[in-house]
Amino acid sequence: YIKTMYELNMRYGWSKFIIVVPSIAIREGVYKSFQITQEHFTEDYGKKIRFFIYNSSQLTEIDRFASDNSLNVMIINAQAFNARGKDARRIYMKLDSFRSRRPIDVIAKTNPILIIDEPQSVEGKQTKENLKGFNPLFTLRYSATHKKDSLYNLIYRLDAMEAYNKKLVKKIAVKGIAQTGTTGTEGYLYLEGINLFKEKSPTANLGFEVKQAGGVKAVVRKIEIGHNLYDRSGSLEQYRDGFTVTNIDGRDNSVTFQNGTKLYA
């Protein structure tokens, strides 16, 4: 997202950015990233980013952030405007040392672009509400593990294969998984592996859904030839038709069901 800031500044002149991170440790890591990439980006774009960590006691930094025309980035952890302690609340207080202004108001007047680092860890209900106080021009959210119910307006995705093709990583290791269906509606199945024995028939570690007191849950259970998933799932409808194990084959690591479904480890 540092490159994104430079590009947005170069193309549209936007210069106020706030990076919101979930913890102090990540905040320090982000700050370090700005330090070690500064020369690299200065060579590419011919200008430096002025970056700082928000501190309620260093109000001159906020003044400079608001008034300076160059590229400015404030790094702030969510606790700094979410927590209930007096120090955290200072962002919402009229401060004598800040000419009776509230830091949040000074920041909000700049209409900063918000960048959320690891939104799945940051964006709780209260945080989402509090982020509106920054009056952002818009918000960008960066994560490798977005929650499925909060993935919207996807602009860019970098998956493992693309990272390899772009030479961002030297190699990728692939773990093959065979799965049919998705949880909840279809016959979800996942074959973890086959167990072979000298004296008895092989068994399979099979993932499927089970009806429990708290709802339906995906589990991995040891399954033998003749086992019926309809019975073992607590009579879930998706396993009613022919999901009885007819064969467990150690030669190709597969499980076959009565209805013809064949699954590989």
Rank of each mutant, 00 (worst) to 15 (best):
N165A: 05
K94W: 05
M74D: 01
Y45S: 01
R221M: 07
P136H: 05
T180A: 11
L131H: 11
G193Q: 09
I62H: 00
T139Q: 05
E186H: 10
N82Y: 13
H146K: 09
G242T: 06
L191F: 04
G242D: 02
T182F: 15
V220E: 01
L8R: 03
T139A: 08
G85A: 14
I2G: 00
D117F: 04
K16L: 00
Y188S: 03
Q126G: 09
S100D: 14
T244D: 04
D249G: 11
E39V: 11
G215V: 03
E162A: 10
L206H: 05
L168A: 06
N69H: 12
I62E: 02
N195A: 13
G187W: 08
Q179E: 10
I104A: 01
Q179C: 11
V20E: 00
T185P: 00
E129W: 09
F98L: 02
N82F: 09
S233R: 04
F65N: 02
K148H: 12
Q120N: 10
G176E: 14
R232E: 08
V174L: 13
A83V: 06
Q179R: 15
T182K: 15
I113C: 04
N111C: 07
I53F: 07
P136Q: 01
K132R: 13
T110Y: 01
K262H: 04
Y239P: 03
G176F: 15
L229C: 02
D231T: 13
I53S: 06
N195T: 15
V220G: 02
N205R: 14
D63I: 08
E43H: 10
I225C: 09
T182W: 14
T110M: 02
E118D: 00
D252R: 09
Q126N: 14
E118N: 04
Y1A: 11
G242E: 07
N135Q: 08
